[in-house]
Design a protein around this nucleic acid. Sequence first.
DNA 1: ACCTGAACACCGTTCAAGT
DNA 2: ACCTGAACACCGTTCAAGT
Lengths: 219, 219
Amino acid sequence: MAAPTPRATRKRMGRYHHGDLRQALLAAALRMIQKHGAASLTLRAVGQDLGVSRTALYRHFADKAALLAAVGTDGFRRFRLALLDAWQRDGKGLAGFAAIGAAYVRFAADHPSHYRVMFGGALHQSRRPEPDLVTEGRAAFRVLVDALIELQRDGLVQAGDPHRQAVFVWSTVHGIAMLAIDGQLNHEGVDPIALVQFGMAHLMDGIRTPASHAPSSPK
Amino acid sequence: MAAPTPRATRKRMGRYHHGDLRQALLAAALRMIQKHGAASLTLRAVGQDLGVSRTALYRHFADKAALLAAVGTDGFRRFRLALLDAWQRDGKGLAGFAAIGAAYVRFAADHPSHYRVMFGGALHQSRRPEPDLVTEGRAAFRVLVDALIELQRDGLVQAGDPHRQAVFVWSTVHGIAMLAIDGQLNHEGVDPIALVQFGMAHLMDGIRTPASHAPSSPK
DNA sequence: ACCTGAACACCGTTCAAGT
DNA sequence: ACCTGAACACCGTTCAAGT
């Protein structure tokens, strides 16, 4: 592929786009959502941004909802990788698990509009649940479950349904993330990252084994 | 006032509305949001539903965002009353506090669209933060803080910044509520009310005083 | 296959005009 | 004061037509 670099998304006048237009549309939509919020996203503006007709999009997406679903799906993919990276970078274990919580909130704080598309419900409450979005959402959730399974296996977390434990952790962290990007924590003078660290420590106290108390107190 | 009952919001043909049109608009908007979601709310449909011109609304609201903000403000008012009712009905104390959590999630589950308008961010992220919405949101949050202050005073909850404790409880419960109305808990086979009861019990274990363990285990 | 341009039905909002 | 009706600028989507 000696063609124009992947960054040269803008087509040359009078010629067809002929790159990965689908990918370019996705990137453009994401860029505009991050800048102005999903509410004001316009298909016409997306096309214009790429120098493409405003109907070219329909070759790659059924409609606007499908485009947004693809943006959300892509978000869940990045999200999952961010969580996985935090877990592995901090050597798994209890510190790694706490790092997942921090990474979760950081992702939401850094990409509020993207996060909102992922969880916005504008998608879920529509006609059908958008299978790809659901699948990718579940995959992200799986990171938590897998981490808990490992922690249980290593005797760091109490036995119990890892699924239920994960749902509870997810809820807590999701709640902090949502309040943070809604600005509800701002006028309460609370730092989201500090809050999630406090919360994760609290959660861990509840589910970790007595044996894990001795050899773990890093930073 | 021997005029038509407050329920007869529909104006008689050829005459002005002449009731509390503002209130009628609010009720109509809420009704339509609950039925079809906030995304598909149309000012024209609101007017039509009331038998009123589609521009009559501008006498009472600056624009569509202002109408939605008013719907959210109204939601926070009902929400606060629901939380307060749960707290008082269950005799305050630790059982009452747990009841607040359940009432919180129940409100969200029963009025998902309304809840979404309240927390949706479509409002918060807009131009200015819509003062009434913020005020009423804070008032709802205050229910939690006040409850924790009472619990501390009665020696049922550990000393500590009640504000910080409240933020953490709020986050947890909000997360459960959001995941529930997003349907993320459905395909995990988790009952939101059961989850929030589990979560509240867990939280209470973390913040209640040792002394409170003896005299409290009702149902 | 991929893209265009005109057209359609809809939307929020403005504004001069009515009572 | 409160409401109307026409008008404006915008939107998502369709579709026959181009290459």
